[in-house]
Every structure is written in structure tokens, then in C-alpha cells.
Amino acid sequence: MNGVDDRIVEVVKLSRPAQRALAAAGIETFADLATWAKADVAGLHGVGPKSFTELDPAMAARGLDYRAP
């Protein structure tokens, strides 16, 4: 699977706190994630630098990027 509607938790390995933070913010798919600025995602409690080592390449593989700040 390599689509914008792929569920993040089914594609990348994130910590449980990061998974909960994204879910609580309503971010389930990569399309959802693309509507957020990277700084705002980083500000979610539980999402740290390691999360972005997984999320960034997965976003790029789908031709997506974070919303401009």
C-alpha cells in the first residue's frame, strides 16, 4: 500500500504515545497528516523526533508534505 488514504498505524512503526496522540488529534491517514504543519504535529504530547524518522519518508513516498506553517 502506498496511498494517501493508508492508515498511519498500519504502515509505520510508532510508539504507543505517538499513536495515541495522532488518534486523539484525529490524524488517522497520511491525507489527514498532510493537513497539519509539522511543528503542530511535533507539539502533540507523545510525538517526538523518532516519530518523524518514520513519518517523513512515508509522507514523501506518497507525494505528500506537511502543511506550510
Rank of each mutant, 00 (worst) to 15 (best):
P17N: 04
E28C: 08
V11W: 03
K38D: 12
L33F: 10
S15K: 00
H45S: 14
V4F: 07
P17D: 04
V11I: 14
V12L: 00
I8M: 02
D6V: 03
G63D: 08
E10C: 11
L55H: 04
L64M: 10
Y66G: 07
K50C: 10
M1D: 12
D56L: 05
H45I: 13
V11F: 03
L14R: 03
T53S: 06
I27R: 04
L64I: 11
L22K: 03
L33V: 11
I27T: 09
V9I: 15
V41N: 00
V11M: 06
G63C: 08
F30E: 01
L44K: 00
W36H: 05
A39L: 10
R20V: 14
T35R: 15
E28K: 08
A58W: 09
G63R: 07
Y66F: 13
R67W: 12
I8D: 01
I8K: 02
A68E: 14
F52G: 03
A18K: 05
G3Y: 11
A68W: 11
H45C: 11
P17I: 10
G63Y: 09
A60E: 15
V11A: 05
A18W: 07
V9C: 08
D6E: 05
T53K: 04
L22A: 01
V47Q: 06
P69R: 15
G48A: 11
A23K: 15
D40E: 15
K38N: 09
P49T: 14
T53V: 12
T29R: 07
V12M: 03
L33K: 01
R16V: 11
K13Q: 07
L22F: 09
F52Y: 07
A31L: 02
F52D: 00
V47P: 06
F30L: 01
M59P: 02
P49Q: 11
M59A: 05
A23Q: 15
A39I: 13
G3E: 12
A25N: 04
Q19F: 02
E10Q: 15
A23M: 14
T53G: 04
S15D: 04
A31D: 07
R16Y: 06
L64C: 05
P57T: 06
P69N: 14
V9D: 09
N2C: 05
A37C: 11
A61E: 13
A68Q: 14
P49D: 13
A61C: 08
L44F: 08
A24K: 13
P49F: 09
W36G: 04
M1H: 12
A42V: 10
A24E: 15
M1N: 11
L14N: 02
V41A: 03
A21C: 01
P49K: 12
V47K: 01
V11N: 03
A34D: 07
S15M: 03
L44I: 11
Y66S: 08
V12R: 02
R67H: 13
G3F: 10
R62A: 05
L33C: 08
